[in-house]
Amino acid sequence: MVILKLEDLDFSYNKSRTLKEISFTLEGGGLLGIVGPNGSGKTTLLKCINNLLTPDSGEITVKGEKMSELGGRDLARKLGFVPQTEEPVFPSTVFDLVLTGRTPHSSWKPSSDDLTVVSDVLKDLGLEELALRDVNSLSGGQFRKVLIARGFAQEPELLLLDEPMASLDLRHQLEVLNTLRGWLTESRGAAVTFHDLNLAAKYCDELLILKDGEVFARGGPEILTREVIEPVYGVEVEVSKATVRPSITPIRPLAGG
């Protein structure tokens, strides 16, 4: 089953084209990694998919439904978005913040099913000790996990995560990605932007490599080769291909890069 399909997506910020003719499809159960240097359009792409930004042209469909024709709650039940960061203004418990993920499923107050979903998600992510703590008292990494938990609690068909690994330590990175893999089923998909190519190679089924708003390469983890990485990032790398999933060691910036 095709979860996500993009056709010829174009987007510009103030007339400068940020995304150019992006096309790809993501199959059910798949984890799509979006990689590329800073400013290559990764976050913009996620926001276009989630209707937070309106593309100039092109079509986005999730399970066959056009995103441009969906709005509000209908959209929020299909698509979840975990932002890079968020600044809580007022105190709130972790449980309450994750519970807001249930907003598209409930009317004016959460049901007991909603509480159960949140409880399960917090356990899956190992956040139960923090459930009644104030979000303002959490470390950066813990807070990221809480935002991810809210995305899981939303139970969308496609979950978009923007740099979820930033500010997580090694253990938390692996825990979150394992939970994400466990969360995926045939009827769900996830699209994640990554800075860490090794993590992307280790966990993703599909990779989309962006350079200057265009798809530079697309395919399984095996497309992460020297020939691709060096021009995209302007960095000399060593790539070892002991398994299907390559591991990348950065060496030095390329001259003029």
Binding site: L52, G72, F81, E86, L97, T100, G101, T103, S106
Partner: peptide
């Protein structure tokens, strides 16, 4: 309860269908 979701910021509120 919707105000709770809004206090996470407009972007998050939108992605929660508000």
């Amino acid at each position: 309860w919707r105000y709770r979701a809004m206090s996470s910021g407009d972007q998050t509120a939108k992605s929660l269908g508000i």
